Amino acid sequence: MGSSPMAQRSGSVPLRAYLRPLLVCDISVSPSCSTESLLRVCRECGPKEWRSDTSTWDDFTVTPVRGGLTNLMYACAHNSIRVVVRVYGANSDAFNERDGRVTKALGEVGMGKQVYGFFQNGRVEGWIQGRTLQPGELVDPDIAPLVGTKMAELHTLSLYENEGESGTEREEERVPTLWSLLHSWMDESESVTFDKGSHNAQRLEALDLPRWREYAREVEVALASTSSPVVFAHNDLHAGNILYDPSSHSASLIDWEFASWSYRDFDIANYMGEVHDCDPDLFPTQSQQSHFLRGYCSVAGGEWQDLYRLAVPWVPVSHLLWGFWGVIQAYKSHIPDFDYLEYARMRFESLKRCTVQNE
Rank of each mutant, 00 (worst) to 15 (best):
V13E: 04
D277F: 09
E49M: 09
W185Q: 13
W127V: 03
S3F: 09
D208Q: 14
A17F: 06
Y308C: 05
N91T: 11
L181R: 15
Q357P: 00
W179E: 02
R211F: 15
T61G: 12
K196H: 11
N121P: 00
R131Y: 14
Q357I: 06
P246A: 14
P176K: 14
Q289T: 05
P64S: 12
P145K: 11
E44W: 00
G167H: 09
G130T: 14
T285I: 13
A94P: 00
N96C: 12
Y340F: 15
A90W: 07
R345G: 03
G164K: 06
V13K: 02
L72R: 14
W212R: 07
V41H: 00
V29S: 03
C45A: 15
M73W: 04
Q120D: 09
D26E: 15
L106H: 02
V139Y: 04
R211E: 08
A311G: 04
P229K: 10
H334M: 10
K48T: 12
E165I: 06
Q8E: 15
E163H: 13
L22V: 11
P141M: 09
P14W: 11
C76V: 13
V65Y: 09
E218G: 13
L22T: 09
M151K: 12
G326L: 13
G68P: 03
D99W: 06
H183E: 15
Q114D: 13
D277T: 00
A233F: 06
E165T: 06
G11V: 13
A300F: 07
N270K: 03
P284E: 12
F258M: 11
T35I: 13
L146K: 05
S290E: 01
Q286G: 12
L69I: 14
D142G: 09
S4T: 15
Y215A: 11
R170T: 12
P145L: 12
H78S: 14
F324A: 01
R347T: 02
P135L: 08
C25H: 07
H199P: 02
L243H: 04
V109H: 09
R309G: 05
L209Y: 12
E349V: 01
C297E: 04
H276L: 00
V221E: 11
R66T: 14
A251R: 01
